[in-house]
Design a protein around this nucleic acid. Structure first.
Lengths: 189, 189
DNA sequence: TTCTAAGTTGGACACGTGTCCAGTCAGGTG
DNA sequence: CACCTGACTGGACACGTGTCCAACTTAGAA
């Protein structure tokens, strides 16, 4: 069981094939109907092989999301913290809206106790925090920074959850976060 | 399939038995290991019967959570909005902390697309909103109220999600929310 | 008491998950 | 060239989900 460790040479290609197939399948049938076996089939690989790359359906979703998120790293821009924060949330909201199936898939997936999911979950959480911290720069006094960052991360996670539940559309996320970010940051600058 | 509609007379008792058994089983083995069939067994009822009361495992969790939440309605207290808000989040955080298995179970459960879950999800969301609105009273100007309420609900959902992921313990929720609530409300009173 | 309808049951079903393993295959290495 | 090793495969497995249905039980109405 050394699987899912080394991703060099031949294994790297197969992994790519699988993730690509996963993304396609997700777009095609949604995360409820997606099956590890159907992804394997689409990738032209046997289910047994798929499971040497991906520990579980949830792990697949988390991996896809992480790669997608990572592909959309923002270029810092804007003169004030509020402006930069909004650009940040806007950017992520847009990304989510552009891949609604993936977004819908990842929320429940990240709640899995699968160790492979756990790793990604931490990475993703750290990434969110980092982006907010970068956006704020040093425009907020250090003694208040943690509280504000906390609030931002929680609000963003909450937005993800609510969108995952269908209470907000992924399209509305942008506007919603705009006003929430303003409400949070107000009075701390 | 008129099931799960009428809950009068005999059916009411069986439902109670099932939910009680569900709560016990949850405490005993956690939500991962819990099985609809094991709950049915504990309730002294056949699996087929259980499924006439409960559409799915997720529905069971949602129902249990809703009842638990509902059982802990707060008595309004405190002179200022911030104080009352904190009392509100404290109260809920305490409830969550006192039933960690249930809390851990409900987060993924509420993401289900099961129609029975959907109903409860809306009710629970509305309940959160209501509690925050009550706590604020009219201490925040109307034109800012929506933004603040939004931020509060999102932050709270986010906290739920993060706790569900194990990034925060349910015990820490209280303190965490305290400072977040302060950060959000600051400058709006 | 007999009839009726609601409630319950056992058992089978189709399906998805994730695991396991003996066996095949391909591509270097010696 | 024969050989080895890592990748892949087919097919079975145990288990959980949620559905279905014909048959039983039971309580109360006629």
């Amino acid at each position: 069981m050394v699987a899912r460790q080394a991703v060099d040479g031949r294994r790297a290609e197969t992994l790519e094939k699988l993730l690509e197939a996963g993304a396609e399948e997700l777009r095609a049938v949604g995360h409820e109907a997606l099956t590890v076996r159907s992804v394997a089939a689409r990738a032209g690989v046997s289910p047994a092989t798929a499971y040497t790359y991906v520990a579980s359906k949830n792990h697949l979703f988390a991996e896809l999301f992480w790669r997608y998120l990572d592909s959309g790293r923002p270029e810092a821009a804007g003169s004030g913290a509020l402006e930069r924060l909004r650009a940040t949330t806007r950017g992520m909201a847009t990304q989510l809206a552009e891949a609604p199936e993936l977004s819908a898939a990842v929320t429940p997936a990240l709640l899995s106790s699968d160790p492979d999911v756990e790793r990604l979950r931490l990475r993703i959480g750290a990434e969110f925090l980092q982006r907010f911290a970068d956006a704020i720069g040093d425009d907020i006094p250090a003694e208040r920074l943690d509280g504000v960052l906390d609030a931002l991360v929680l609000a963003f996670s909450g937005a993800l959850l609510q969108a995952g539940m269908g209470l907000i559309t992924y399209t509305d996320l942008g506007d919603r976060l705009d006003s929430v970010v303003a409400a949070i940051v107000e009075g701390h600058l």
